[in-house]
Design a protein around this nucleic acid. Sequence first.
DNA 1: AACTATACCTGCAAGC
DNA 2: TGCTTGCAGGTATAGT
Length: 272
Amino acid sequence: MPELPEVEILKRSLEGQLMHSTIDRLEKTRDNIRYRLSSQLEKNVQAAKIIMLRRRAKYLVIDLNNAYSIIIHLGMSGRLRLQPNNYEIQKHDHVIFHLQNEQKLVFNDARRFGMVYAIATSLTDAQFFYNLGVEPLSDNFTLTYFTEKILRRNMPIKTLLMDNQIIVGIGNIYASESLFIAKIDPRKPSNTLTNEEINRLILAVQNVLSKAIDAGGTTLKDFVNGDNKAGYFQQQLQVYARHKQQCLNCSAIIEKIKQAGRATFYCPDCQK
DNA sequence: AACTATACCTGCAAGC
DNA sequence: TGCTTGCAGGTATAGT
């Protein structure tokens, strides 16, 4: 479900309501999702006050006033929603944060690819996020940085765009969309991109992600923010899931191929 | 080292 | 209708 824009929207939808809330206790309905839900987790969040919400890559970070942070990843199908006190647990609700104001922050994840973890705040960057590349919407995403990474790799540029050690937050939807906007063939080996193409790609990535955030994210199937509201960027998708349909720019037929095990969509005429 | 395939899990749609 | 198959927004790990 969630790539950078969706997690950013989730963060923005929750921070106003969660800031300064206190977590009474944590309830879990099973011991593991993607990883084991440690017994430390309950202890580390109990009676703690939420002081900050952050996003790093596709992770949502909830900083607590007890020097711990909750790190949440939605995987493919995860949802995190704020529910009223009379909410009843539903299928695939795995972790429930009971807040002091009687509301419940509920982590639901049918496929259980997501994660909920608690770690000392001081260790989040050093231990948990140390392996991650640049944030595409930050000043660190420069032509110099990206060129250096791209030119030393031979893999298809679409696959590289999804490599979190180089650049974070771009998943399967926005990789295809960015390459369409940049007019670059997704199969093109990274080290054959020209300076001009790399420049276009940087702008395209930032443009697509910003617009997706403005639209509240992409809801193909089940993405919702913390208030249970869907996004509407799917209405602006140019190529993703549009195979066999006409290109909105040139009317050629959009193609679907498989790269590194993932579907890729592109216009054979616009993208060279 | 660079790159690809696989595993994890449930739900759903397409095809037979 | 009902069954089987494949695919889905992610990513860690095993294998080439």
